[in-house]
Nucleic acid binder design. Structure first.
Lengths: 245, 245
DNA sequence: CCGGGGACTGGCAGTTCTTACAGGCTCTCT
DNA sequence: AGAGAGCCTGTAAGAACTGCCAGTCCCCGG
């Protein structure tokens, strides 16, 4: 009873605590402490695609043993790691022991366990504009024990991870002077068809306007989006969530 | 004390209950019931872009008064509604009363309140491949009271919404026989540059290969992706998360 | 050792884009 | 009523893309 009540209370408070932290390092510590209370030893946050921050390289924050992190990076395991690949495609958090592994991936997992990293849960984080991050928590517990921890705390970890990501993303996206780009309905429509591979002439037929007018709208969209050709315009519009197919 | 414990228990159980439901209608009722327990009157789920299901039209599930739903759809309010637009760009759940409103949007809100829809929280749901849905919960309470409800249940509603979406998405995506498309490193590289608006010639310069070879890789990628031109190839590759810029 | 696949290169006809120029029509908000 | 925004249309030349032909080199697994 008491434990449940404490748990319920922690739930809100831990997240509220996260939201008040000011620095990346403090955020890391606060998160690690919360996880320790739940019985989880380590976590790793990988912000792999954070368009709002304008970075192309990933943001990695980890509490794993240094030696393992180094080994992992030196061997570019992130290119192969089943956890990362699953994160890209999944929506809900997943336990590592539920993943199907190819030989190379199995090897990575067993190397990890030499560093006592035995069980884990990863939270895929997808945001607008193709934003993507992955927050993994890991423990030295055997799978069965870890599962018991998760039954108690899975959703807690899930929500905390989402807020953690939001905080990191805000911290790395300095001046939010991103004045909202708005496409006119026609522009959005034309770009949307373009994204499906239609030519200007075809779109003209579809919308009952001349090819020339289609080109005109695309030009305007390119202007607004600040790009130099159709491809880029379509990609950027999608990234900004401006198209509705 | 007792309330807290009950709340903590509900938290897990409500979600587990959701996950066992078999039909869309039952899911709707289960979710509505959970929300009623929290003091929330209505909810609306809009699956606006569900690529896994192969649908282009949105999936809308609502418990709003029929009359309001009809009015909303007939007037295409979803094109203007501040809630929908914010959902596209936001990552975390947001209260409606925190949104900046333009005149038209203000009008929609006040029309809604004539149907007693006074306060609301919307949970943006972004998934892999540009998947997007929005789950809004609403109440007839004034803003201050509703905020109190949220302080207690915000995260609960958040997580439930994510699982709700996952369930809906699974139900509408029949047989997951989507054989994984894999691009060769070179193909991914070339498409990635293309998505940034580079021409084939420019990419050739960047990679130190001939323009012709760039075109060759793009052709192969188009084959693998089953599309007819560059635009479509880039868009599809992004949607499938095959590019890493 | 041979087949298959990936990376690479060339040419050429036809299609589509890009980017100039120039103009008109209809809304809404002030 | 006028300003601004959105929408619509035309011509034209050069750049870029598409689709189909052809071929070499290298590595990996059977």
């Amino acid at each position: 009873m008491d434990a449940k009540a404490k748990h319920g209370k922690d739930y809100q408070e831990h997240i509220d605590a996260l939201r008040e932290v000011q620095s990346v390092a403090a955020l890391r510590d606060a998160f690690a402490t919360s996880l320790k209370n739940l019985g989880v030893s380590w976590f790793t946050y990988g912000g792999l695609r954070l368009p709002r921050t304008g970075r192309t390289d990933p943001v990695i924050i980890t509490t794993y043993p240094d030696e393992w992190s180094r080994h992992y990076n030196e061997n570019r395991y992130y290119e192969t790691d089943a956890v990362v690949r699953s994160g890209f495609q999944n929506f809900l958090p997943f336990r590592w022991d539920t993943l199907p592994l190819r030989p190379k991936q199995k090897r990575i997992m067993s190397e990890a366990s030499e560093f006592k990293i035995a069980s884990g849960l990863s939270v895929p984080i997808h945001g607008p504009s193709g934003e993507f991050a992955l927050l993994s928590v890991a423990s030295e517990m055997p799978a069965a024990d870890f599962e018991r921890v998760l039954n108690e705390s899975r959703h807690h970890i899930h929500v905390m991870s989402l807020y953690y990501h939001a905080m990191i993303n805000d911290m790395f996206a300095p001046d939010q002077t991103v004045e909202a780009i708005e496409l006119s309905p026609r522009e959005a429509e034309v770009l949307s068809w373009t994204s499906e591979g239609k030519t200007a002439w075809e779109i003209g037929e579809i919308l009952g306007i001349s090819e020339r007018t289609v080109v005109f709208h695309i030009e305007n969209a390119k202007q607004k989006l600040g790009v130099f050709n159709k491809n880029q315009a379509v990609v950027k519009a999608i990234m900004l969530g401006l198209l509705k197919p």
